[in-house]
Simulated scan of single mutants.
Amino acid sequence: MPFILKKMFIKEKQRAFLFIVKELGYTQKEAQRFISKGRVLVNGEIMDKSSTEIEGEIEFICFEPISKGLQVHVEYDEFVVFDKPSGLLIHPQNRNTPYSLIDELKYQFGRDANIAHRIDQETSGLVLCSKNKNSERDIKMMFQERDMKKKYLAMVHGEVKNDICIEAPLLRKQDESAIVRMVVKVHEDGKKSKTDVKPLKYFPDKDMTLVECSPFTGRQHQIRVHLFHVKHSIVGDPIYGQSEENIVKFLDKELTPLQRISNSGASRLLLHANELEFDLYNKKFHINSEVDFFKICFDSMSI
């Protein structure tokens, strides 16, 4: 498990954050964040003030990444791209998460490597990652300026006959229900969002269409919600287009693969980040996934 409890001994009394900076090599900002998140314990009690002076034995909850052998898709001097499989988290959900993509990245490229953007756990495909603090800043700035072009492949329900430009504002629902709170919806009070959808191939025997999606904004669940909004929900989506009962079963991990196929058409979300195109450091990059998404789609529709 990446998060482990390390015991350490401090000979001379000093401020907690200074010990983490000097002895463990983190920045002051990182040290203060660790302390605020309860990752330093003294006599078994969580310490939450970075200015507190400590000495003697302390415990530090540290992140030690592990590898499961996921190979980098492409590597350059300042960044790498992984082709993430469906089901793999980008970051740990909590300290009990056994493995996520950040494990693989930091295991292979060190503490300063970081993931520059996110895709959903169930979405597969390309994830751009920086190899150091400088490239992290540059890449995140590129995303903020919307200089990144992304294309996704999705298998959707129904026939999509023509290109669609979906411009529908997205709002994260606020509700007492934990189920509803995690769901994004189209709402006039939401943030501006735009997705272009292009049909690639219709499969009449399954009444499904393979489409290419180009999001111009990067809202949470944007492609999923936009396609659901135009009545072409993504095959295998366990949230959008499902009853609350089935959503609860999915979230509680009580939905069997066969039930999921029966409810949504596939055992996984059939959405794949297929292309990244951007300019960085005076160079043009156009990176394509090598995954056979078409095969994945039809393999996921049966047990």
Rank of each mutant, 00 (worst) to 15 (best):
K6W: 00
K6T: 01
F9C: 08
R15L: 02
I20C: 02
V21I: 11
Q32I: 02
G38Q: 03
G38V: 02
V42W: 01
E45S: 10
I46V: 13
D48Q: 14
E53W: 09
I54T: 07
G56P: 06
E59N: 02
F63L: 07
I66Y: 05
E75M: 08
K84Q: 04
P85F: 08
H91V: 08
Q93E: 14
N94T: 07
N94V: 08
Y99P: 01
S100L: 06
D103V: 12
Q108F: 06
Q108S: 14
G110F: 03
D120P: 09
Q121L: 05
Q121G: 00
V127G: 09
V127I: 14
S130M: 10
R137A: 11
D138K: 15
K140G: 04
M142T: 07
Q144P: 02
E145S: 09
E145K: 13
K151M: 14
Y152K: 06
Y152F: 10
V160C: 06
I164R: 15
I166F: 05
P169L: 09
L170F: 02
R172M: 13
E176A: 08
I179F: 08
V180K: 15
R181I: 09
V183L: 15
H187R: 13
D189A: 14
G190S: 12
K191D: 10
D196L: 13
K198D: 00
P199F: 04
Y202T: 07
F203Y: 15
D205N: 12
M208L: 11
S214E: 13
Q220M: 13
I223W: 01
R224K: 11
H226T: 11
L227H: 12
L227K: 10
L227Y: 09
F228L: 06
K231A: 10
H232S: 04
D237M: 00
I239D: 03
Y240F: 07
T256Y: 09
P257E: 05
R260G: 04
G265E: 06
S267L: 01
S267K: 13
L270D: 03
A273E: 00
D279N: 13
K283Y: 02
F285Y: 15
F285T: 09
C297Q: 11
I303L: 14
